[in-house]
Design a protein around this nucleic acid. Structure first.
Lengths: 209, 209
DNA sequence: TTCTGTGAAGCCGTTCACAGCC
DNA sequence: GGCTGTGAACGGCTTCACAGAA
C-alpha cells in the first residue's frame, strides 16, 4: 500500500470534513460532495479512498460514520495523540490553548520555554516546564509530536532535544529549516512563506489579464 | 512563462533562505546548497531558477545579491505588501505582532474583530477596528491580503467582506473551507490537518519496519 | 575540475472511460 | 439513472545526462 503525500493530505482533509457531517446526522456522502469540500475532483477522492481499501455504496455514496471510522483506523487518527509545544511566546501560548487541537484527536499535554520568567507569568490550564525538562517529561507522558514555536535560531537545537527524548514527529512553525533523522516525520508551516506564495500568485494572476 | 505551484513555493523558500545569506555577506551560492536548505534536489533548483530566466555563474553558482533581487522582482516579493488580520483571539493577536511578517516584505496595517470588548482591551501598536469597518479601511489603506483567524463558522462571511472590499489574496487559518472567486488567491493553513498528516505518516513509517 | 543550463527520458499522480451495481 | 471502482491513457514534474563555460 503506497500512499503519496498528496493522498495522505487529502484523506486528512476528508476526515476533517466528516466531523461536522456526522454531527449533522448525514448518513451518506458522495465523492462529488467530498471533492468540493476539500477542493479536488471526484475521481481523485474515489481513487484515494479506494487506495485505502475502503468501499462505498453504489448509488448512495459513502456511509459517513463507517467512512470516518475506517479512514481513522487506516491512518491512525482515531486515538488521541499527545503533543507538546516548545516556545511560549505569543504564538506558542496561543497554540497552547488552541481549542481545535483538543477537539480533534490531539491533546497538548505540556508546554516548554527556556525563560523561567515566562513560565511563571503564563496563564494556562496546561502544565508548563523549563526546556531542561523536555527529556524527562516527553518520556513520562509519552508525547509523540513536538510543536516548535521558538525563534528560528533555536529551532534545530530544540528539535534535537525533542527527538532525543523520543518524539516521532515535529511540526515546525519557525522559519528555519530543521534537519531530522529519516524515521522522524517533519512538517514546516512557515507563515511568511505562505504570504510570499500568495503575493507571487497575485502577481502572476494579474499578468495573465 | 508557466510556473507550477510547486515551483512558486520552492522559489519562495529559496528567497527566504537568501536573506540570512545576504546578511552573512556570502557572495555566491550553489544550487546544491540551496537544494539542501529547502529540501529538494539541485536539479530542481536549477530548473526552477532557469524557468524564471535568471542565470548563475558557471563554477561559482548564483550571485546571492542579484539572485535575490531578480527572484524578488519576478515574483513581486521586493515591495512591501499590506495585509490585515481579521479575528483577534489568541491566534489573531499573536499574528498581529508576529515580527517575521514585518521583517520580510509584509506589513500588517490593521486588525479587525467583531467584539468591541476585545478591541478595547487589546494591546498592540497596530490599529484595530470593528469588522464593520473592513470595507472602508481595506480600501483606504490599499490592503492586498486578508488573514483569517476567526472561528470557522464565520470564515466565509468575513472572506466575502474582505473580497468585496478588494483584497486579492486570503490566508485562512480557520479549519473551514472558504470559496473565493477565480481571481482571488486562496491558501489554507490548517494546523489540525498538519497534525493529522504527521500522525498518519508516523503510523505509515512504523508499519514499514 | 566544478558548476550552470537544458533537451530528453522516466516516473508518478491525475484524469478519463467504462463496467458494475442498486 | 446515479454513484462507486478501477485499469488505461494522459500530462506534467522531476530526474537524468550531457554540453558549455570559466
Amino acid at each position: 500500500m503506497e500512499l503519496s503525500d498528496n493522498t495522505i493530505e487529502r484523506i486528512c482533509k476528508v476526515f476533517g470534513y466528516l466531523n461536522p457531517l456526522e454531527r449533522g446526522a448525514a448518513e451518506f456522502v458522495s465523492s462529488k460532495e467530498l471533492a468540493k469540500a476539500i477542493g479536488t475532483t471526484e475521481y481523485t477522492v474515489r481513487k484515494d479512498i479506494s487506495l485505502l481499501g475502503v468501499c462505498g455504496y453504489t448509488r448512495k455514496g459513502y456511509a459517513v460514520k463507517s467512512l470516518k471510522e475506517e479512514l481513522g483506523r487506516k491512518l491512525n487518527l482515531n486515538k488521541k495523540r499527545k503533543a507538546c509545544i516548545v516556545g511560549l511566546g505569543r504564538l506558542g501560548s496561543a497554540l497552547l490553548d488552541y481549542e481545535k487541537f483538543q477537539e480533534d484527536g490531539f491533546e497538548i499535554v505540556a508546554g516548554f520555554d527556556c525563560s523561567i520568567n515566562k513560565l511563571e507569568r503564563i496563564k494556562t490550564p496546561i502544565d508548563v516546564f523549563s526546556d531542561n525538562d523536555i527529556k524527562e517529561i516527553v518520556a513520562q507522558r509519552s508525547i509523540e509530536v513536538g510543536i516548535l514555536a521558538v525563534p528560528s535560531q533555536r529551532a534545530q537545537d530544540v528539535a534535537d532535544k525533542l527527538i532525543g527524548a523520543g518524539v516521532k514527529g515535529i511540526l515546525n512553525f519557525s522559519n528555519h529549516k530543521v534537519i531530522v533523522p529519516e524515521n522522524v516525520i517533519y512538517l514546516n508551516l512557515d507563515f511568511t512563506n505562505a504570504l510570499r506564495f500568495i503575493a507571487a500568485k497575485i502577481m502572476i494572476n494579474q499578468n495573465q489579464n
